[in-house]
Computed example of a mutant assay.
Amino acid sequence: MKIGVYSGSFDPITLGHQDVIKRAAQMFDKLIVVVCNNSEKKYWFSLEERTEMVKELLKDYDNIEIDNYSGLIVNYLIEKDITFIVRGVRNQEDCALELYFADGNYMISDKKVDTVFIPAMKEYIHTSSTAAREIARYGGKVECYVDEKIAKKVLERGKIYAPK
């Protein structure tokens, strides 16, 4: 069975993330979407809230499993004996950073974890969780960046972070 892992903080999960997930799910017998905590980031939503949003949006996929993890994602793959990590890339900056991480993950895993890159579709090149949060802070049309099923949650959370 060919298994892939797609990880992210998903704060919140965007339409771009969903597109990469949909496309990756076609490549693998099973895709595990891992909601991660990054110690360098300050989150709007808790790990549990982010995991629930991801589960809500991906519930109709038969070959997708949702998990969460705190730590190096390569360690997750090593622990689970999975060899493929999926990464989406939107632009040259993403590509350079993801190439750096891919090489590091490959070396850390003793050359057992390889990276599959999925380029963003043109309509999602500017889509990011950061942009979605900024739009939500000002009560904007967040549905351009996140699924309508979670747009209300994102807008409500945006009110907490809105400028005073």
Rank of each mutant, 00 (worst) to 15 (best):
R90L: 10
E52D: 11
D81N: 14
F10A: 05
I78P: 06
Y145W: 08
D11C: 09
H126C: 12
A131V: 14
L155N: 03
A25F: 00
Q18F: 11
K55N: 02
S70T: 14
V74K: 02
I21M: 04
N105H: 05
S129M: 02
Y124E: 02
T83F: 05
I32S: 05
L31K: 00
L57K: 04
N75T: 09
K55T: 04
T115Y: 00
R157A: 12
D29H: 04
M27Y: 01
E48C: 11
S70N: 07
L57M: 07
D110A: 10
L47E: 02
Q18L: 15
G104L: 14
M27R: 00
C144P: 02
E98C: 06
G88H: 03
T130P: 02
D114Y: 07
K22D: 08
T127R: 02
D62L: 11
V54D: 03
E52A: 12
Y61D: 06
D114P: 03
V74F: 04
C95E: 08
R157K: 15
G158T: 06
T115R: 00
T115M: 05
N91I: 00
G4D: 03
F117C: 07
T14F: 05
I135D: 07
I135S: 10
Y76D: 09
N68I: 15
K141T: 14
S7K: 02
S39M: 08
N75F: 04
Y145Q: 03
K22A: 12
I135W: 01
I3F: 04
S9A: 12
V116Q: 00
A131N: 07
R87S: 06
I135Q: 07
I108T: 13
H17F: 01
I160H: 06
K42C: 11
I3S: 09
V86K: 01
E79L: 13
A151E: 06
A24K: 00
E79I: 15
I32Y: 03
G139W: 00
H126S: 13
E49L: 12
W44F: 10
Q26V: 14
E148S: 13
I32E: 03
I85N: 01
I78F: 06
E48F: 10
F84R: 13
K55R: 12
E134S: 11
D94W: 04
S128P: 00
I82R: 03
L72D: 10
D81I: 03
M121N: 10
S70D: 10
Y69G: 08
Y61K: 01
K111N: 14
C36L: 08
S7V: 10
I118E: 07
E79Q: 14
L58V: 14
K41F: 08
E93N: 05
N75Q: 01
E52I: 07
C36T: 10
K42V: 15
V74T: 05
V113E: 00
D81H: 13
K159H: 09
A96K: 06
D29N: 10
E148K: 07
Y61R: 03
I32N: 04
A102P: 00
D94M: 01
I125T: 12
Y6C: 12
